[in-house]
Write a protein that binds this DNA or RNA. Structure first.
Length: 257
DNA sequence: ATGACTGCCTCTGGCAGA
């Protein structure tokens, strides 16, 4: 099976590109971030027409996540990240698909630093760590995928200097990311590309795409039960270069049956 | 170089993104 993640930056503006990507690459499961619509605006019937079942957690204007599965309905396990009843942002959705627990996340950006948004990001990462510890203890095949908004190392960004003050690569963000990995979750893209230099995001501004000024913030983390079956992982980079593209490219991991 | 672009809902400009 192939599990993919794609920050689409608005499902209404991106729908033709998204349907095109699904039909061309046909992932078994696709986790989407930044759908930027309320639940009632989610175009479930468009996905049904091409054979995908979906669950989604929407929010007006911002955030919003969804899980699509090819020919089978995802069985929802958890909606919203546990640990803070006050948190109403739609950034977390968890489901079972074909015996695999799939967790789709849209981790807070955290800019500017310092400030309440950065504090929220770090607190969110603590809560995610607590949930991942529970999943770990279940010893199930599990993939935590999505837009983590963390550049893990200097090898994951075109210019560490240019991004030095950004929330995505603060030492606190990186420490929190490496605590999430602990000593057991496998960062699939990093494992298969140990020298770095793999980007998943290119800014719309300043010709970042044309200059290849990107970085890696979309990640696919595998529990040991899934990491043992890791076959390949990649970035659908060409989709970033198309008309009306998202600023993120899709990422995916291939798992042996 | 406080720049550069895009999507959203609309107080059609301000916010958020990364």
């Amino acid at each position: 099976m192939r599990i993919a993640s794609f920050n689409i930056n608005g499902i209404k503006a991106r729908l033709p590109r998204l349907l095109e990507w699904l039909e061309e690459t046909r992932p078994t499961v696709a986790c989407l971030q930044e759908i930027k619509t309320q639940d009632e605006g989610f175009p479930a019937e468009e996905f049904a027409k091409i054979g995908y079942h979906a669950i989604w957690h929407g929010q007006k204007s911002f955030n919003g996540v969804a899980i699509l599965a090819d020919g089978v309905a995802p069985v929802e396990v958890q909606r919203g990240l546990p640990g803070d009843p006050e948190d109403e942002q739609a950034r977390y959705l968890e489901a079972d698909v074909n015996g695999v627990r799939v967790v789709g996340i849209y981790l807070p950006n955290g800019n500017p630093v310092p400030g309440p948004k950065f504090d929220y990001k770090l607190a969110w990462m603590e809560r995610l760590g607590a949930r991942m510890a529970e999943l770990w203890a279940q010893e199930i095949p599990c993939a935590v995928v999505g837009d983590f908004n963390v550049i893990p190392t200097d090898a994951d960004v075109w210019s560490p200097k240019a991004m030095a003050s950004d929330a995505l690569m603060q030492p606190e963000s990186r420490d929190a990311y490496h605590r999430l990995l602990g000593d057991g979750w496998t960062d699939a893209l990093a494992t298969l590309n140990p020298r770095g230099g793999v980007w998943t995001y290119w800014d719309y501004q300043a010709g970042a795409w044309q200059r290849d000024h990107g970085f890696r913030i979309d990640h696919l983390l595998l529990s040991p039960e899934l990491a043992d079956r890791l076959e390949a992982a990649g970035v659908d980079k060409d989709h970033r270069g198309r008309e009306k593209a998202s600023d993120h490219a899709p990422v995916w991991v291939s798992i042996r049956d």
